[in-house]
Design a binder for these strands. Structure first.
Lengths: 253, 253
DNA sequence: CGCACTCTTGAAATCTCTCAAAGACGGTGG
DNA sequence: CCACCGTCTTTGAGAGATTTCAAGAGTGCG
């Protein structure tokens, strides 16, 4: 079980820049909250969106127990969210990238239930949730899309449960790579060549494996000719096979 | 890894009774969707709530791929939801009881992503989602509580991720029992004495363990004097210790 | 150039699974 | 009312996957 108390990263706190965000001008608006809105509605949404906020690498966007006031839309960069249980073990519950929403788990109790940390220098848009909810009354399209996003998060987590509950190490890791690949693809980046923004340890923690297992898996996949690795630089040489491995259809000797 | 293709239960399909539900008259209304609504708002909600529907034991409430039109509030009984991956393995993603909402994962794609099956003869209220969403425009309290419920589901799933990713068998099982206990308590039932509605196999599947492991765990806990078991009848003799085990603070020799 | 950190690799230990058999339980039919 | 059957459960022994422990190699930064 991976559970190092994870040392002293995260001293810094996110800096606040008073730049007003403009959804219409944002490259993510087709993936993000304003998806499918017309010009007029997007302008209304723009009006309630708060500051744009830079979050340096390793800084917390929010911490467990922080009062909940904003959701955050990632404009740029990558985050991880993790939970900590009473005995201090942590479990990374997700890696988020541009266009994804952070903080939805906090609505239920008005306090954040996990920590969100930037994996690299990043930028988010603050979305004051009370104002957003008020806006829903006059913007059914926005409301519906918001529900879709929450629902998608539920679905995503169910997939992770399937992964953690049912899959062997090899399968989990292939599923992880395949998932990253698909998400980069949607964002217009290469689906076969990208940088891992997280450490081996973070991958292992997320997948319920140890750092050593991840390292071995990486070596094994490399030896099979399925991937090419150089530190964090990753290339998927055989995405089809990886997908098959993820689905349990195939496995290596 | 537990993954029997799970045999032929579930032939039957849920029967539809044309009884109109009345939230105000329902014993679950303090836990369920109408929580916190005033009389007037509750009456409005009543008007859109669809039929009350009986779901016999082992019957599907919905299946993967079914078009999404309704959420379901459980009035009575217990359900399980499970996912099936391409290679046919299944993972139970949750056990739901009265007052809980089913189907929220379907909003994102307008299709159900999992199967929902009654663990005993049960009863649900159909909630046509389109009508519900329309109602939100005029009932901010309802909307907010709905968001809380979705958020709570996200939080719940994150806890399961922590469980599956970080905990040993003993800890998982103690956490499972503790969780059931708390949920029965909230519903006004005994927190220390209740019936398991699911088979050992289902528990194992949910917790990422085999049926044999669950059986051994049950025996071990019994030997420790923490619980008393008789088939599905369960009594928690030492809830405090069980909680400690769940948190990883304690463990048995 | 050296330190701190991350990553890789090997060998042994451990947990949980798999396989196997026997024991309960509940329902059915004689 | 009892015997029988299928299903679920319990328990044991051995196997296997992943972890743990340990050491060494690589990388980046000051």
């Amino acid at each position: 079980m991976p559970h190092q108390p994870q040392p002293q990263q995260q001293q810094t706190t996110a800096t606040v820049h008073d730049l007003r965000a403009r959804c219409s001008a944002c490259s993510m608006h087709q993936l993000c909250l304003p998806m499918g809105l017309n010009e007029l509605d997007m302008a209304k949404l723009d009006q309630i969106i708060g500051r744009r906020r830079k979050v340096p690498r390793d800084a917390h966007l929010y911490r467990v127990g922080d009062p909940f006031t904003n959701l955050y839309a990632i404009r740029l960069g990558h985050f991880k969210t993790h939970q900590i249980n009473p005995s201090g073990d942590q479990q990374i519950t997700g890696f988020q990238m541009a266009g994804e929403l952070l903080g939805m788990d906090a609505i239920s109790t008005d306090r954040h239930h996990c920590n969100a940390i930037a994996l690299e220098d990043s930028e988010v848009c603050e979305i004051p949730f009370a104002r957003l909810e008020a806006l829903f009354a006059e913007m059914p399209t926005l409301l519906h899309h918001f529900h879709r996003m929450m629902s998608q998060e539920i679905t995503r987590e169910q997939s992770v449960m399937l992964l953690l509950g049912n899959m062997r190490a090899e399968q989990r890791f292939a599923a992880f790579l395949t998932n990253l690949s698909a998400r980069y693809s949607v964002r217009g980046y290469s689906s076969t060549s990208f940088q891992l923004r997280m450490t081996r340890e973070e991958i292992g923690n997320y997948l319920g494996l140890t750092i050593e297992s991840i390292s071995r898996l990486l070596s094994k996949f490399k030896k099979q000719g399925w991937i090419k690795v150089n530190n964090r630089e990753l290339e998927l040489l055989d995405p089809a096979t990886l997908k098959a491995v993820a689905q349990g259809t195939q496995s290596c000797a």
